[in-house]
Design a protein around this nucleic acid. Structure first.
Lengths: 247, 247
DNA sequence: CGCGCGCCTTGACGCAGATCAACTTTCTGG
DNA sequence: CCAGAAAGTTGATCTGCGTCAAGGCGCGCG
């Protein structure tokens, strides 16, 4: 799993419309201006569908707030989430005609959209963005492969811990220094977590309770999670601890 | 899962050193010549390691024959295969300094290698190849996500059928027309299959026997597999049948 | 207020696949 | 051709998670 390098993270990107580091972290003023020309915003409510598999998307977008999921479904209804889109992630990447998976908002979702054609033209004319686009896709591939280990070989408890530590890690990107405790809101229902982890919602519920009972996490309400010791959580996840979340 | 379009497949690429369609199918004579300048071959025996996680690879390569696997390992030894590299697949793609996973030969493996620096220079100077490189990576991402569904939601029997149909599909690329029966050699041991599918080797063995008993596959020896009806296999895999393997 | 509904929790039980173990078949090297 | 190792098969038993079911909590709405 890749952690952001400190220098990139510290750069202030708060008003950049594309917050994904792949485009944002290094974007230069004139590129940004060109992006502004073609951008608009869209809001989706929880449960709303952004795109179905096979849709031709007429836009390219970056998640600004909330969360969306990428889901595969079998004919008999079994579902597997294959991607979790959190603020700064990309949807409808150039180079593809349509999306192959359902994209559904799991909490209120705001996306910063770009009309596809001008965006693609811009990519084509800006070599370093094209290059970062490949880098970004390779990062996603890494994440997908990391997740294959979770799905194939980890126990239910380890799966939950892995998911929590991914979200914690993402959250910690916006906090400075080396982090040892984190608090965040789970953007997912128990059912969505189950779909992500290849479990049932009952098992998710049981294991979350177990982690709480064992002091690995604390809950304020159902959704707000406090992790007193990130190292402990990562140990539960079966990952080799790398000394806290470096941010 | 993407199937090759007929016109691309029919093109004769047998003496092209990079058989992956991403580079090969559209490669033009002068590009090919430039590739020839920097290529050499390497052979690995079964079990030999091509690269460890974190290695800086000094070459970029395409699998010519045999198979290699990309594997993630946990400290306690649990393993999950996250990629299966069959003839025409790429290793050590430009844009990454090292590989992040262990690449190990599972059967005798011949790779067509390119020294990295000149290859990358060539990529940089040839826009359509750079574009195809992104396309290729997106295909891999799709495959990884497809596999997440297999790992997270399919039964042992469906998992085996899915793996067999992936290999059958790959094999059928070299045969003409719409294919309804295929024969191929499994390039994997039962243990490697288990690592790929998130199962134990005993379960793999049992389910292979079951598929044989039920007439879905026929075995000649342990490794040679004949699939009398590809549709049936795909049904067992839980995929929507798309009317045979289009080649 | 209280009714219904979505979301979550908890318990009891069953089963698919893991584990442990014995054995067979196929390779490999002398 | 044989001996030993590696790969694969098959059976018996165990267990983690799925399944089914009952109920709790919070919240919007008539």
């Amino acid at each position: 799993m890749t952690t952001m390098t400190p220098d990139l993270a510290k750069q202030d990107c708060s008003d950049c419309p594309i917050r994904h580091r792949a485009v944002c972290a290094r974007c230069e003023p004139d590129e940004l201006e060109r992006l502004e020309e073609v951008k608009y915003y869209r809001t989706y409510e929880a449960g709303q569908t952004v795109a179905w598999a096979g849709d031709k998307m007429d836009f390219v977008a970056s998640v600004v707030s909330g969360a969306a999921t990428l889901t595969q479904t079998m004919e008999d209804g079994r579902r597997q989430m294959v991607g979790l889109l959190l603020p700064s992630d990309f949807v409808g990447r150039p180079g593809r005609d349509g999306v192959r998976y359902d994209v559904v908002a799991v909490s209120e979702l705001v996306m910063c959209c770009f009309r596809k054609a001008p965006f693609e033209k811009m990519i084509a004319s800006t070599p370093h963005i094209a290059e970062r686009l490949l880098e970004m896709t390779l990062d996603e591939l890494d994440a997908a492969r990391e997740w294959m280990l979770v799905l194939g070989r980890k126990t239910a408890r380890e799966k939950i811990a892995s998911l929590l530590s991914i979200i914690a890690r993402r959250d910690a990107v916006y906090a400075p220094g080396v982090v040892r405790s984190v608090t965040f809101d789970l953007p997912l229902t128990r059912e969505a977590m189950a779909d992500y982890l290849g479990l049932t919602l009952e098992t998710v519920s049981r294991q979350v309770s177990a982690l709480k009972r064992d002091g690995v996490i604390e809950l304020q309400g159902k959704r707000r999670v406090h992790v007193p010791d990130v190292d402990l959580l990562m140990e539960e996840a079966g990952d080799d601890s790398d000394g806290g979340l470096l941010v």
